[in-house]
Write a protein that binds this DNA or RNA. Structure first.
Lengths: 215, 215
DNA sequence: TAGATTGTTAATCGATTAACAATC
DNA sequence: TAGATTGTTAATCGATTAACAATC
């Protein structure tokens, strides 16, 4: 089941298809045409069919797509049936928010540890997972075969910690620090730069105000 | 200073330029060529010049770009010099994380209130801002001219609350709920769908594993 | 002035949309 | 079978990259 290169644009849309199909499934819809889905999602039917056909023919002429089947298949493509052990570095508000975040489990992500520099947090547990101090990080990652590190620490520390994780076997980083990590090509990085999201919001408000309040 | 339509691709890159220029400024770099910046940011010099020239000619032939000037100008384009009053709906871990989030202030965002359904949070303050109950939301938004609502509530409530906010004068939503809001066209929505980010991470890990561990 | 580097036009590349034959 | 809708090829559109004349 090897694959041509799939464009990032397609990959970015995949989780959104998955979400909509999940909602359809919940509301008991059995089948859907690309045309009907296109209306709900506000994308073209053509794009839906093109996107899906990167991965195989999931539909049937004259019928459309079976919602449950398509949902399951996209789940497989996204790898949601596989288990991934991860740790969170930085047990502040954001780190704790993520630790409590139920979506992890549905997606196959298993939280193994939380780490922080603040000694007052040492030994506390969140959802049964202990907060440990940073000096334990290296050994913990190695011994527990941790695959993913979630970075919710200030940018000043992020690069250093990311390198430590990678040196000890971590394969992927979910990066919430406001910096680029510049890791080796074989390391997968998914950035969540909230500050950039906020600036886009600011840009759009500003542009809207300029257009509508004269000037 | 009106404007042709700027593409979303350009807008998405703008905050990243701003971040890199801020770092250059901090490290005392006075001027930079598109070529040098392109090496640091790993984009083409051509793209940098094209992007910036959507907004004006900020450089000088034979010299490059003055870092401080360009930083300031991009800040203006992003509207970071303007003040925006906002409230956070949902004072759980994520809402509290955002309330404590310093970047807001640097970007001109002023937190006016936090709202939640949990009565045990009532009256608590975060950074001097009180947590209020949801039944006060409507009047509060109206009376305080709130411009932006940040939604850190479950998706089941998000659409309803978003509509309430918009009906009472809110112009923009920073949406962390896992759903699309379908608001009127004149309302600005910036989505942060963490669950989709996580699925992209999952996809990339899975694809990488498939390629490298046989199969 | 000569060298460097921009701003901008032209060429290329990739992604989206349209169209339609295949087929359930 | 006739109607519906896919899968896929072709056409269009937009974004990125290359090239270079303008100019500091």
């Amino acid at each position: 089941m090897a694959s041509r290169e799939i464009s990032q644009a397609v990959i970015r849309r995949l989780p959104r298809y998955y979400r909509y199909l999940g909602e359809l499934l919940e509301s008991g819809v059995e089948r859907i045409s690309s045309n009907e889905l296109s209306k709900r999602m506000k994308v073209t039917a053509s794009q839906i069919r093109q996107d899906l056909n990167n991965f195989g023919g999931f539909g049937q002429q004259g019928y459309g797509y079976n919602v449950k089947y398509l949902y399951t298949e996209i789940g497989k493509i996204l790898g949601l049936n596989e288990k991934h052990k991860f740790v969170i570095i930085g047990a502040g508000n954001l780190g704790q928010a993520l630790a409590n975040y139920a979506a992890f489990e549905n997606r196959g992500f298993v939280l193994k540890g939380l780490f922080d520099v603040n000694p007052r947090l040492a030994g506390l547990t969140i959802r049964g997972v202990e907060i440990r101090m940073m000096d334990e990080l290296k050994d913990f990652v190695k011994e527990n075969d941790i695959e993913i590190g979630v970075l919710t620490i200030p940018k000043t520390k992020a690069v250093e910690v990311a390198n430590l994780l990678v040196d000890n076997g971590v394969k992927a980083i979910w990066n919430f620090a406001h910096t680029d990590l510049n890791l080796p090509d074989n390391i997968i990085v998914e950035n969540v730069h909230l500050s950039e999201s906020l600036m886009r919001l600011s840009y759009n408000i500003t542009r809207y105000n300029e257009e509508h309040e004269g000037k």
